[in-house]
Every structure is written in C-alpha cells, then in structure tokens.
Design a protein around this nucleic acid. Structure first.
Length: 478
RNA sequence: GGGGUUGUAGGGUAGCCUGGUCCAUCCUACAGCGUUCGGGACGCUGUGACCUGAGUUCGAAUCUCAGCAACCCCA
C-alpha cells in the first residue's frame, strides 16, 4: 500500500510550488540542471522543442516589421564602458574574457549581459538619413550575467540562453514612445497565445532599465503569489544615441540624434508557461506550442496488429494535417503511458482499443480532463482541432480567474503586508519617490509600478496621506 | 559579502568517526527474455558508483589540503 502511494506521488503537489517546479523540469524533460556550472542548465530535446515552438510565436509577431539579425557575443571594454548609467547597472554582473590563449588581451572583452553596447556602434554606421528610419531589428541569443543571488532554472540564470531582444531607432521621441506601446501590445498578444494573462505596469523610476527614460514591464503571478517579470520595453530616448553618436540627416539637411527603444523577453516565458498552466500531474501545454499535440495509445487485447494498424492509419491522417502526433506503441501498459504523456503536457490523447474499433469510434481525453468519444471518420481531425481551441480558452480563463483572485486593492499598510504574503497588493500611492521607497520598506515587497489604464477612486497615499487616484502594484518578486 | 552542512550508479540510502573484511543495498533507473495491456503489471536474468585534483599511506569512499557543485542560515 505504501509503495503504491509513493509511486503516485512522483510529482510533489503544485501547492508546494518550488519543489513541484524543480521536479517537473526534470520529469517532463524541460531542462537538466545538473550541468556543473552554477546558474547554467541544459535544454533537453523535449524542452528545446517547446522552446522552439514558443519562440516561433515571437518571431511571427515581430517579423511583420522587424528584421532578425545576429550580433557578436563579445563586446570590447571600450564600447561597453561608454554609457555611464548603463555600466553602473551591469558592471557587477559582467563576465570578462581577459586572455586569448595564454596572452592577456590588450582590451578586455565582455560577454554581453544585454546587447545595446554591441549593437549601437553598428547602428551609427547603418543609420545615415531619415530614410533609414524607423529601423527595427531583433536577435535571439544567449547573454551572461554573473548573478550573485540564488539562481533558479529558467528564472534567474547566469547564462540566459534565449534572450529575444529587439532594438529600434526612430526620428522622434514620440515615435519611439509609440513603438514602446506597440511592443507592449505585441507582448500581451504573445502571452495571450500562450493563454497567459499579464499585469502591465510602468516601473518606478528607480527600477527602470539602466540608461532608459522609462520602462514598461509585464509580470505574471506565479502559483505562490510572487510575481515573475516576463517582458520589458524601454524607451531609451536619445541617451544612447548621444553616447554612440547615432545621428541621421533630416529632410532639411540637419543632423539629429535618433530616438531609440529596446524590448526583451527571455526563457522566463517558458517558466511562466509551466507555472501558470501546470497541475499535479505535470505540464499542461497549449496546443500551439506542445511538442506533441496528440498522442495515440493503443489498448491491446489479444491480437496486437489489427489495433496498431488502425492507430497507424489515424496517426498518418493527423500528420497529413500538420498535427504533431505520436503513436506510443511501446510495451508499457496504457496507464503508465497516460501518466507519462500527461507529465509532458500533451493536449489531446486518443485511446484506441477493441471496443472503439467495434463502435467505429475513438476515445479522446483532453489534458484538462475532458473525456469524449468521437466518430472515427473524416470528421475526426476537425473535431480534434475544435477540442484544441476549446482547451485554449479553458486555460486562459482559468489563468485569468486565478490572476484576478490574487490581486487586491488595499487601504492600509497592514493589509498590504498581509496581501503580499500570497498575492499582489494594489496600493494607493501619491507617486513620489520617497513614499515609494517607504512603501517597499514598510510592506516588505517591491513596487511593480503603476497599473496602466484604469484608475482607482481617490484614496489616501498610505505613506504621506495625500489624496490621489494613483496606485501601484506591490508584490514579492522572483 | 560572512558562516555552516553536504557530495556514493538514473534516483534514494548505508558505510566514513576508528583506512584493509566491500561483490553494500533499495527503487519509481537501465538492458534482455517471457507472460501481460480500457489509469503507474509481474517473474526471471543481468547492468551500473564512491564529485575533481593533489597529498599522507604498503593500502583511501573513509584521513589532510585545494577546487568545483548543491543545500541551509546570517548580512
């Protein structure tokens, strides 16, 4: 009896989020954390396939008006050290290459912690006239940061393996600001396709990107109520343009500085995907990004071949419609296969046994638990695609409901302190830097920033007591 | 940044103090064969390890030093 319970408790319950997360990364074969360098882990092939499908969405969203490109990993110290504020933000986290073979380098090379200082010297050469603007490029690369805090797979890494960073240049500050807005909308859409709702807020001035005028961030509320920053968009204005002398000649023949933006998403989006949708049985993946979208499990009684034959035929029909289908004809028992593919988040399972063949039907089970019998004929593929779509909205609605339940408008410091223990507090705030710092100190959580769009009724700032319609999200952050 | 604990097969443990008796052991691991198969099957036969490096020693999983890594606590 004990043995059976142990077997079923392979994954800790999701309510124990930290252990659940780590165990799931291994059991579902996302990343292997055993690589012997702190803060660096290995993508399993299954995890990498998931990564590829997710990043394909970002690419589609950006390729409309961005060009993909690739810049070098190494940045000469002389370029890296040009922008004072930017350096201050990153210098404690930079890995340096100091030698070539046995010879010390004359000029040290930084492993990019982000690529502004690699890209902008080149933009100076690329941009000559107003006809070159706007310029929008992005790259998906690894970046390195010598994190001193506790590292966490996919969340806080020393090598970020999948940093999608976009960089744009515009004629005016207003155009650049508009681009930031467009970027935020694209990111919201990206997460919507992953069935993940986000909080969007303007980061407080002391938490903006080093060298930016302002930063907009997207946060996801994790199962334990802490938030994960999963995307940022920064308005750089002319700060970097002045440092790197990126100018264009306008219609009147005058040289002007470009106005820039940059915005990024990392593999934290995979962490969010796992954390938001996963359950006690493992991953739950939206159809669009699932490495295996349909698994077929044959139920064999007596003769094997006739059943396998039907399975093969259905598999090839599905594959013919570009569905990522896997026929699991291994010799494990069906139950073991069910658990295995549920762990990997497969959205739709098809079971085919003698009973189904006799009824000319198949049994399907959706990853959210819905079980149906579908006719085994030419309508099958469309019926499955319809289930996939329904699963998508079930996932989004479930996630949205959870997120909303974790946010609460508070009217006292005590209430804020207690709310951030398990969720996000929306806190009345006059907007001043002093009151902001005081809030962080007294509540014991960080300011995410002003929620965009909707205002609260006038309330008193919890620190200075001034009446204001301003507010901020506060949360404990990953 | 400071302190502590730990590192044994795919995973979990014992052994370490007191060096040799060690072919250690369990499993949800792996391989082969057979019987099975509508929610984690069973039998049999096998496989596989002492974190890395240096030192002490006739002899090191065990002792010493260094490195790397993990976990915990404090700032």
């Amino acid at each position: 009896m004990v043995r059976k319970e142990e077997r079923e408790a392979k994954l800790p319950p999701k309510s124990n989020f930290s252990e659940w997360y780590h165990e799931l990364l291994k059991s579902a074969e996302i990343v292997d954390v055993r690589y012997p360098v702190k803060g660096m882990s290995v993508w399993y092939p299954f995890g990498f396939a998931l990564r590829s499908h997710v990043y394909q969405i970002i690419k589609e969203l950006l390729d409309v008006d961005h060009y993909e490109t690739q810049f070098p990993l190494l940045i000469p110290e002389t370029e890296f050290m040009k922008e004072a504020e930017h350096i201050k933000g990153f210098e404690d986290e930079v890995y340096w290459v100091t030698h070539g073979g046995r010879d010390p380098l004359d000029i040290k090379l930084a492993l990019r912690p982000t690529s502004e200082t690699a890209i902008y010297p080149m933009l100076r050469l690329w941009i000559r006239s107003h006809a070159d603007l706007p310029l929008r490029i992005y790259q998906i690369v690894n970046t390195f940061r010598y994190e001193t805090k506790h590292t966490r797979p996919l969340i806080r890494l020393r090598e970020i393996t999948s940093f999608k960073e976009a960089h744009t240049a515009h004629a005016t500050w207003e155009e650049a600001a508009m681009q930031v807005e467009i970027a935020v909308q694209r990111y919201i859409e990206f997460y919507r396709r992953l069935a993940i709702p986000c909080l969007v807020s303007k980061r407080p001035s002391w938490d903006k990107f080093p060298g930016a005028d302002y930063s907009i961030a997207l946060d996801v509320i994790m199962p334990d109520g802490r938030t994960l920053q999963v995307g940022t968009a920064h308005l750089l204005g002319t700060n970097f343009a002045k440092t790197y002398e990126i100018t264009y000649e306008d219609e009147h023949g005058e040289q002007r500085y470009v106005n820039q933006t940059c915005y990024g998403i990392s593999e934290r989006c995979i962490a969010a995907l796992i954390a938001v949708h996963g359950d006690d049985k493992g991953l739950v993946l939206p159809w669009r990004v699932a490495p295996v979208q349909v698994v077929i499990v044959p139920i064999i009684f007596g003769e094997r071949e006739p059943i396998i034959e039907v399975c093969r035929s259905i598999a090839s029909t599905l594959a013919g419609r570009n569905i990522r289908v896997r026929l699991d004809d291994g010799d494990e028992r069906p139950g073991a296969k069910f658990y295995k593919w549920e762990m990997r988040g497969v959205p739709v399972r098809i079971e085919i046994g003698p009973r189904d063949i006799k009824n000319n039907a198949v049994t399907i089970v959706r990853r959210d638990g819905v079980r149906k019998t579908l006719p085994m004929d030419e309508r099958l593929v469309d019926a499955i695609l319809a289930e996939a779509e329904e699963l998508q909205s079930v996932l989004y609605n479930r996630a949205k409901e959870f997120m909303d339940s974790k946010i609460k408008l508070v009217s006292s410091l005590d209430e804020a302190r207690s709310q951030v223990q398990s969720g996000v507090a929306r806190v009345p705030w006059c907007g001043s830097v002093e009151c902001g710092h005081a809030l962080e100190d007294q509540v014991g959580a960080n300011l995410l920033g002003e929620p965009r769009g909707d205002e609260i009724p006038p309330m008193r700032c919890l620190i200075c007591g001034k009446e204001s319609t301003g507010s901020t999200y506060m949360a404990r952050q990953y």
